[in-house]
Design a protein around this nucleic acid. Structure first.
Lengths: 247, 247
DNA sequence: ACAAAAGTGTTACGATTACACCCATGC
DNA sequence: GCATGGGTGTAATCGTAACACTTTTGT
């Protein structure tokens, strides 16, 4: 720590959320239209300042999550992602944002937030391709969040957070296919997730109205790290030599 | 973002550094003895408040790194790790710390910082086992940093940051063995690192006074992500079912 | 010549893939 | 019965581990 001869700079702290879900087989991000003035009317990630003195960062993220979504129970995955504090990122002054990644099962269609004028699920593809413009540095944050979700799917049990309490293995596979944007072999996927001990545990015989033989149902197991991991197939011949690492 | 009906809380922002290096084949962390009053005389991670209005977080981390170590050139790896902001973590008030991970080649023995009374390289093992007490929540931060380094060694070219400008493959192997605490087969390691294209590139024939045939020398390649990755051998039969994920 | 360390070939094994096949249910 | 989707068996293939072996230098 530094000597206190000069007074240290204080900053405003916000939490921003990259909330991901699956809608009609597509990975989507929750975006809100800003009702307040910096970037009023523009799309942005949900988020906000710390509430009162003493609110924990993770609590603030949970609070913003509840405000923006109609999340019933505590069945949401929420974890810290990275901190963005570039001096020019907010016109109001020095605002540092601790970005979080949230994963939720498919949520009711249009979600009306408390202070946000409007909220909408936007396909992750549109964000990645730059098709939508976002306020602040939220494009960067959203991109980082999506990429992090893709990576964590390989090594952690994150995929179950996209599903409801109980789910079939086919549903779990759809999560992987949607987030990665690839197709997987049903039979091999079946055995791989079973091989990862503690990933999923049986939860009764299933009743699903899909027509064929009913699938067995499972729920999330105790393990958070997957071994062996589910390796994401390489995007075929397209070599990508440029991938930044340090931020 | 929230409406401005109430004034948002401002916090003090610090950067803390988990600086890792190899000394005599052991992974070590740089710790300083605090000369100022919260936890005066106790060991802590190097770090400090943001300097003046407008200093970028990453710049502050670089500055602290230079102050605490005698780093000559820019050959240091520095990346953001995680943010720690629990309300009780600093007795002076609400202080939020953006922790960074730094990797450096073996540095001169005793490093005297500018404001820290004393600085010392402490074996990572001692920190992990709880053998040394650290100020604030720095034990947690240091543990997280060491674990992150271990993981990143598998999938990124981080290991080269532990080496000097040029290095032999055997030296690179020592990095892996020290950080992971395992032994690796020399021959297979040799081919694995060569197979990861862009990881290391030749840098002239080597001269080392080790007695045998001189090793070829290499330098860090352009690639930051390793494919195929160098998988860390499982720690034998010892099952570990409890590994936290969310923070 | 010998020791020490670098680098190469080769085989055995385990994991992964691709795909053929059988099972259970609704209509 | 037959369409539909769930679940199992198996051979070809790939990557890896293990280790014998050759090469190059210093003394």
């Amino acid at each position: 720590m530094q000597a206190d001869s000069w007074s240290p700079t204080s900053v405003l702290l916000t939490v921003d959320l990259v909330i991901l879900t699956l809608r009609e087989g597509r990975l989507c991000v929750l975006l809100v239209e800003r009702g307040e003035d910096p970037f009023r009317g523009m799309l942005a990630l949900p988020g906000g300042f710390l509430n009162h003195d003493g609110e924990e960062i993770l609590d603030a993220a949970h609070r913003e999550l509840s405000e923006e979504t109609a999340l019933t129970s505590g069945r949401v995955h929420l974890e810290q992602m990275a901190t963005y504090g570039d001096s020019g990122r907010d016109p109001r002054g020095r605002v540092v944002s601790v970005a979080h990644l949230a994963i939720a099962p498919g949520l009711p269609d249009p979600v009306a937030g408390t202070d946000a004028t409007d909220a909408a699920w936007v396909p992750a593809e549109s964000v990645l391709s730059g098709g939508v413009e976002l306020a602040f540095d939220h494009h960067r944050i959203a991109t980082d969040g999506i990429e992090q979700a893709r990576t964590k799917l390989e090594f952690s049990a994150l995929a179950t957070a996209f599903c409801r309490e109980t789910f079939s293995i086919a549903e779990l596979q759809q999560v992987y296919e949607a987030v990665w944007g690839t197709e997987l072999d049903t039979r091999n996927f079946y055995r791989k997730v079973q091989a990862a001990k503690g990933f999923i545990v049986p939860a009764g015989s299933g009743r699903r109205d899909t027509g064929g033989r009913p699938a067995r149902l499972y729920k999330a197991g105790p393990q958070t790290v997957l071994f062996p991991p589910l390796i994401r197939p390489a995007p075929s011949t397209t070599e990508e030599t440029t991938r930044g690492e340090e931020q």
